[in-house]
């Protein structure tokens, strides 16, 4: 999947953890970009084969929590199945009645191979700390998020 030029991210200086700003025209692209930033922090390279797919659907009480829960799944599969995320197909980030949100996605990647994959920064958790997710007019969305490492 090619990256939209209006989608991107930059790291923000943080005293101890990793803070990143992410922008994208849609919530789906925003979620995907954030997951890929997270995955590359943990395993910077080399290129990840996409030979395993995992269906991941999460639902939560608001959009930030939906993102928090969904990104936590990346950490869950990394620890419990040594799964390295290479790409992700975010099919929808839907708004449901009562302010709830549902994320429907497919994680794509492969098993971590020692000596082949680079061991980067282990992310312990996604945090709500100073988390902002705002709509920027017609330009799309901007997120700031901190990963605890």
């Amino acid at each position: 999947m090619a990256r939209d030029p209006t989608t991107g991210h930059e790291f923000i200086s943080h005293p101890a953890d990793i803070q990143v700003a992410v922008w994208a025209p849609t919530l789906e692209a925003l979620f995907r970009e954030t997951a890929l930033v997270l995955a590359r922090l943990m395993v910077p390279g080399p290129e990840i084969a996409l030979d395993r797919e995992i269906e991941v659907v999460t639902e939560a009480e608001d959009v930030k929590s939906a993102l928090f829960d969904w990104l936590t799944e990346v950490l869950f599969y990394s620890d419990s199945e040594l799964f390295v995320l290479g790409d992700v197909d975010v099919r929808s980030v839907e708004s449901l009645p009562g302010g709830r949100y549902r994320v429907t996605s497919t994680f794509k990647g492969e098993a971590f191979k020692k000596g082949h994959h680079v061991s980067g920064t282990e992310v312990k958790a996604i945090t709500y700390s100073y988390m902002t997710l705002e709509r920027e007019g017609e330009g799309g969305y901007r997120l700031e998020i901190i990963f605890d490492i």
Partner: peptide, 17 residues
């Protein structure tokens, strides 16, 4: 179950950071 699953293979490992 999620927490247990994340921990089941990690006993005796250092982690990073």
């Amino acid at each position: 179950g999620k927490a247990k699953s994340r921990g089941k293979t990690q006993i005796g490992s250092l982690g990073s950071g």
